[in-house]
Design a protein around this nucleic acid. Structure first.
Lengths: 196, 196
DNA sequence: ATTTCCTGCTAACAGTCGTTAGCATTCTCT
DNA sequence: AGAGAATGCTAACGACTGTTAGCAGGAAAT
């Protein structure tokens, strides 16, 4: 019987999750069915349950994988010794790159988290809130040190993160602008607003 | 039989659409059921069909209502005689205000449009592309006239619109920042990046 | 007062949902 | 070669989906 696991560097579960991420983004978590997913994986729906526990587990895996990756990066940047603006730039660039080459995963963590079942939902939202808070603190610190223009940090964090998540609409319609140009221009616009 | 239409200034259809907008935002279009909606309206599911044609029709109504409102405003601004930066500010402020007091509708047009059936989907996406194109042209014009800093207009439009749609996450958690402060700060950040 | 329209109801349709049970096949390891 | 684990299959479950048919009661118009 046609087994899964075509690529050698990934378990069957990872294959399922990867295919699911594509599907969840295209149709939304609620509208994507397990039979849909199974077909993309090349297997019957029931067979998926040899590798995963539930549809919700897939969503959890994706959301927390992304959240952890961002959090790990944030901690590294916080611990680093560099000017605040450089720190912010590093974070912004990571967000943009994640949006560019882990698009499906990031998109789902950004837009489909509301379908997480409790207690994962609360957990996820707490992490999210904490992340934004620490980004705000980082900016606040930069203002205190005189490295950043005195602005409302809550608004700044909101603008920065939202702007990046809008790359979504660029992904959908690969037009003239290249990924590199987009990153450069976006960093320029967002950092410019923070300079004194 | 308990009729709908409690408020005098709205038809039953409008009541349904208003309740639906709330539901669609909370659960997503796919996950929100007609029986769900009926319960919020205070009626049986089948009765809804005396006022609407289908679930999809509700989504269409909402999406195009929002799209038309933005497009009408853009045309008014384009026709007005004022500096480019003032035009942009007017547009940004309208977007923010719409996000503040027509939150449910705007959110759905922003996030649930992918569930539109054809040909409405293509139609909607065309309008959206056209809208952004014209915003970009407006900025381009400002650059030519020397009123706006020479930037990549595609990126600028992306950043501006995305940043505003991020107000969504502010709506969800009414915290310290007031709506007025948010508008002021956001306009400041976004316009600052356009000034020479 | 009677007709007509509007809007509500219940019941049901055909289909899809996520998931489980039970069994067959194949892979891995001794 | 044979045992056991891993992974596939088919069939089915109960619940839920959007929607329609047919009917009843109240509102508006004559």
């Amino acid at each position: 019987m046609a087994r899964i696991q075509s690529k050698r560097n990934s378990t069957k579960k990872e294959v399922i999750i990867e295919k699911a991420s594509r599907l969840f983004r295209e149709k939304g978590f609620g509208a994507a069915s397990m039979r849909d997913l199974a077909e993309h994986v090349g297997v019957e729906a029931a067979s998926l349950y040899n590798h995963i526990q539930s549809k919700a587990e897939i969503l959890q895996t994706i959301c927390f994988k992304v959240a952890n990756e961002f959090m790990t990066n944030l901690e590294a940047v916080e611990a680093s010794q560099q000017p605040t603006l450089k720190k912010m730039e590093a974070i912004i660039r990571l967000h943009i790159r994640m949006m560019l080459d882990q698009y499906e995963f990031v998109y789902i963590a950004d837009h489909e988290w509301r379908h997480l079942p409790e207690p994962y939902l609360s957990n996820f939202l707490n992490q999210r809130r904490n992340y934004r808070k620490r980004l705000g603190d980082l900016l606040e610190d930069g203002i205190t040190k005189g490295e950043v223009k005195p602005i409302d940090t809550y608004t700044a964090v909101l603008v920065i993160l939202s702007a990046i998540s809008g790359i979504d609409s660029w992904q959908r319609s690969r037009k003239s602008t290249t990924a590199e140009a987009l990153e450069t221009n976006m960093v320029k616009y967002l950092i410019e607003g923070l300079k004194k």
